[in-house]
């Protein structure tokens, strides 16, 4: 499949319209000098990936991503930024001096993964063919059945982990009062 064949498919234009802003936003997440902007660019990246999930006919995952990530996790991040008084304005030392080794390491990972993709693509049948699931929406009943039948124990375990993490988060973050402060609180 040549590149012009690939571009002839209209759905690939939709892919490009999502993937290019997504990549730019991801670059800004890791390079932005403003912490709040970095968090908001993450919203853009995640919204684009929800769009990609819809292209891949994974509607349920797309909406879970929008609800959980864009709805809750980003709000948590913004709270974290405000509470820790992370530098909210422009900041020059948000990244440290090890920037070039970090760029080198990430480029090495990128090269390794791209090499793996090309190495595997010849081995798997239909790797360069059209994706079979595209265009047929995944019934969310299938996912629900998977959660309560085959993946019941992982599902319960993940629910338990979430509960434990939230309780742990509250326990960690709440301030222990000193005896003097406790007296003060009782008087009020």
């Amino acid at each position: 499949m040549t590149f012009s064949d690939w571009l002839a498919e209209p759905v690939n234009w939709a892919f490009l319209a999502l993937a290019l802003p997504m990549t730019v936003a991801a670059v800004r997440v890791v390079t932005s000098r403003n912490v709040v902007h970095a968090a908001l660019f993450l919203v853009l990246t995640l919204a684009a990936s929800a769009g990609l999930f819809i292209l891949l006919s994974a509607e349920f995952v797309a909406w879970v991503l929008v609800l959980v990530y864009i709805g809750a996790v980003i709000v948590l991040f913004l709270f974290g930024i405000m509470i820790t008084r992370a530098p909210i304005g422009r900041e020059t030392d948000l990244s440290h001096a090890g920037r070039w080794p970090a760029a080198l390491a990430s480029l090495a990972v990128l090269a390794l993964t791209l090499w793996l993709i090309t190495a595997v693509s010849g081995q798997v049948e239909g790797f360069d063919g059209p994706l079979p699931a595209v265009g047929v929406a995944t019934d969310s009943a299938i996912l629900g059945e998977g959660f309560i039948m085959r993946y019941l124990i992982p599902f319960e375990a993940v629910g338990f982990i979430l509960l434990a993490a939230l309780i742990g988060g509250i326990t960690l973050a709440r301030k222990d009062l000193t005896p003097a402060e406790e007296e003060e609180a009782e008087r009020v």
């Binding site: 991801a26 440290h96 970090a102 990430s106 791209l114 693509s121 790797f127």
Partner: peptide
């Protein structure tokens, strides 16, 4: 759409994440 385009996008995002993980100072 073919599989490779999503894999390449995933690889780019992952390596950007590694860059951010290694180069950022602020914990958030």
């Amino acid at each position: 759409m073919i599989l490779t385009q999503f894999l390449v996008l995933g690889a780019v995002l992952f390596s950007l994440g590694i860059y951010g993980l290694l180069s950022r100072r602020n914990a958030v």
